[in-house]
C-alpha cells in the first residue's frame, strides 16, 4: 500500500496548504504537530502508508523531511513528531495552533506491514526513531487479530526522552509487549539501564518473524547484529534510514546511499538489500 495524491502532470514542487491543529509536547525539544489539509477534497483522498514521510514547509526557512507518525487508517489528521535541531525544525518549534504548515507528500517506501500478518513482529526503536514506527503500531491495533505476538523494544538516553510514554499502556491493552530501556536513569526510573539491543534477549518469537528497526544508525547496527546472532535471517529485518532528503522526488541526488535513493527506494529497506553499504561510515 503506497499513498499518493499528486497527479503526474502537476509540478511535483507544489505544496498542499495545511495548518497546525494541535501541538503535543513529547519530550524536551520534541513535539508532535497535528496537521490538517486545508482542502476538504484533498483531505478526504489523502492516504499514506506506515513509514512514509512528508516534506513539511516553513515558508522563508525551508523544508524538512518528517515521517508521518499517526494512524494510517485515519489520514484526515496527520501527526508529525519533530525534534528541534535545524532551522526548519527550530522554526516549527515556534509554531502555534492555527499556523499554516504547508507540505508535500507522502513519499517513500513503507514498512511491509501486510507481509507481516499472521506472524510475530518485533519493533526496535531508539529516541525519535519510534515516530515512523508508530503508524505500524496503530495499523496492528486496528487489526490486532491479524498479527501474532508483537513487541516494542524502545530506548532513549534518559527517561524523559522517551516519546509517546502516555500511550504505552494503551498499546499494552491491545496485547503489545512494550519494553523500555534508558542509557541514563533518573531517580524515578525503575526499568533497565542499557541499550535497545539488550532488550532483544527478552523476546521469544515463533520464526519466521519480522523485525522493524529505526533509530540512530549505530543502534540499528547493534540491534541487527544481536538479532542475527540469535538466529534471525537478514531478509527478516527491515530498517528505516536517514539521509539529507532535499527534494524527495529522486531528482536532487542528496540522499544517495550506495545505489539507493533513500527518498525513493527507502527510507524503509530490507536489511539484505543494503547490508553491503552499511559497513562504510562515509558512503
Amino acid at each position: 500500500m503506497t499513498g499518493s495524491v499528486m497527479p503526474p502532470s502537476q509540478s511535483p514542487w507544489n505544496v498542499h496548504r495545511a495548518s497546525v491543529t494541535a501541538i503535543h509536547d513529547e519530550a524536551p525539544g520534541v513535539r508532535t504537530y497535528n496537521v490538517t489539509l486545508a482542502d476538504k477534497r484533498l483531505r478526504n483522498c489523502y492516504s499514506f502508508a506506515p513509514g512514509q514521510f512528508n516534506m513539511l514547509y516553513v515558508p522563508g526557512v525551508g523544508e524538512a523531511a518528517i515521517s508521518i507518525s499517526s494512524d494510517p487508517d485515519k489520514p484526515q489528521v496527520l501527526q508529525h513528531t519533530v525534534r528541534a535541531v535545524g532551522n526548519v525544525t527550530n522554526s516549527l518549534a515556534q509554531a502555534q495552533i492555527g499556523d499554516e504548515l504547508p507540505f508535500r507528500g507522502p513519499y517513500g517506501a513503507a514498512w511491509p506491514v501486510e507481509d507481516c500478518q499472521g506472524k510475530d513482529l518485533v519493533i526496535a526503536a531508539g529516541g525519535i526513531g519510534l515516530a515512523p514506527l508508530r503508524p505500524v503500531i496503530h495499523y496492528i491495533i486496528n487489526r490486532r487479530h491479524a498479527f501474532g505476538r508483537v513487541w516494542v523494544l524502545y530506548g532513549s538516553r534518559t527517561p524523559s526522552d522517551l516519546i509517546y510514554q502516555d500511550q504505552f499502556d494503551g498499546w499494552r491493552a491491545h496485547g503489545i509487549e512494550v519494553l523500555t530501556i534508558v542509557d541514563r536513569a533518573d531517580d524515578n526510573w525503575k526499568g533497565p539501564i542499557g541499550v535497545v539491543p539488550d532488550l532483544l534477549r527478552q523476546v521469544t518469537v515463533s520464526q519466521p518473524a519480522t523485525l522493524f528497526t529505526c533509530g540512530p544508525e549505530i543502534m540499528m547496527r547493534f540491534v541487527i547484529l544481536g538479532a542475527l546472532n540469535m538466529g534471525w535471517q537478514e531478509h527478516q529485518v527491515f530498517l528505516s534510514l536517514e539521509r539529507n532528503m532535499n527534494c524527495a522526488l529522486g531528482f536532487c541526488g542528496h540522499c544517495q546511499f550506495g545505489p539507493e535513493f533513500i527518498c525513493k527506494s527507502g527510507p524503509v529497506f530490507n536489511y539484505r538489500r543494503i547490508e553491503p553499504y552499511l559497513r562504510l561510515e562515509d558512503l
Binding site: W13, P59, G60, V61, G62, E63, N244, N246, C247, F251, C252, G253, H254, Q256
Partner: peptide, 29 residues
C-alpha cells in the same frame, strides 16, 4: 544533483524556492 535555496524578503511575507546546480563534492550535499 541540485539543491533548493529558500529565498525570502526581510519581512518574510514573500518567498521563493529556487533549484540550483549542486554537487556531491560539497559538504551541503
Amino acid at each position: 544533483c541540485s539543491s533548493v535555496e529558500e529565498i525570502s524578503d526581510l519581512t518574510g511575507e514573500e518567498v521563493r524556492r529556487e533549484r540550483v546546480w549542486s554537487s556531491c563534492f560539497t559538504a551541503e550535499h
